[in-house]
């Protein structure tokens, strides 16, 4: 028997909104046209609260809460745009840009990159922390795809889509802290992967130029994500 769905009413940026009890602050905000930046979240994949861009303030709660994994509650008062949050978001982006080598002008996704466009949207015009310039490999062993670790922001969308949607679990994360890196299989060249089905889902969900398809001009490197909501819908059906 279906349980009755309960609806919660709350305020986001002083606007009265309502959402189902199983919806997150992010979902309800988006339904109401309120913008909250995100990077690790992607509709259709499990949310992990890792990038910290979607942090919001909730009245009466001392901690900042990630909107992508926080459920709405009755009477909640959410603030998404305070100066403090904007500053933290810009700093988060600055840390990401400083972490690896982002040379947008020569990047395969220049102009179609979520990291790049978020920087612009959030008013980040330069990186205030020193660039680290690590030396990182590019793996072009796969016949169709390339992984360029210089551009990876470790959002793990590739890991999740490959595991949760494609069911191949080719990707994973190796190492700790600043030395973390995404790997294919047991850190073998992607081209040698026994598990990869070459479906291209990881490439399409990657927000940056870390995963891309060989031999396409930059203008055609728009990533296609329309398939995800459909696949998730099918998955919900299955549940």
């Amino acid at each position: 028997m279906n349980q009755p769905v309960r609806v919660k009413t709350l305020k986001i940026d002083d606007r009265d909104v309502s959402g189902r009890e199983d919806e997150t602050i992010l979902e309800v905000a988006r339904q109401n046209g309120i913008f909250i930046p995100t990077l690790c979240h992607l509709d259709g994949l499990t949310s992990i609260g890792a990038c910290r861009l979607c942090l919001v303030e909730v009245k009466g709660v001392s901690r900042l809460l990630p909107a992508c994994v926080t459920r709405v509650e009755e009477g909640m008062e959410v603030y998404t745009q305070s100066e403090r949050l904007q500053k933290y978001r810009r700093m988060t982006l600055e840390l990401l840009f400083s972490e690896r080598n982002h040379i947008c002008s020569v990047c395969v996704v220049n102009g179609h990159c979520e990291l790049q466009s978020l920087a612009q949207t959030l008013g980040m015009t330069h990186v205030g922390v020193p660039y680290r310039f690590p030396r990182l490999p590019v793996d072009a062993s796969h016949e169709r795809f390339v992984v360029d670790h210089n551009r990876c922001i470790l959002c793990t969308r590739c890991v999740r889509v490959c595991d949760e949607i494609e069911g191949a679990h080719t990707w994973d994360v190796m190492g700790r802290g600043i030395d973390s890196r995404v790997i294919t299989d047991l850190s073998e060249p992607w081209g040698d992967s026994e598990t990869c089905t070459s479906c291209g889902k990881c490439v399409n969900v990657c927000p940056t130029g870390a995963l891309f398809e060989k031999g396409k001009p930059v203008a055609d490197r728009l990533k296609k994500r329309q398939f995800l909501p459909y696949l998730t819908m099918m998955r919900e059906e299955r549940r």
Binding site: N101, I103, C104, V106, H126, Y131, F133, R135, L136
Partner: peptide
């Protein structure tokens, strides 16, 4: 005024840094 990506980010000239 930092004028252009090379001045703002290091850009292409900075690609030598990892090496």
């Amino acid at each position: 005024v930092a004028f252009g990506d090379c001045a703002v980010t290091g850009n292409v000239p900075s690609m030598r840094n990892p090496f």
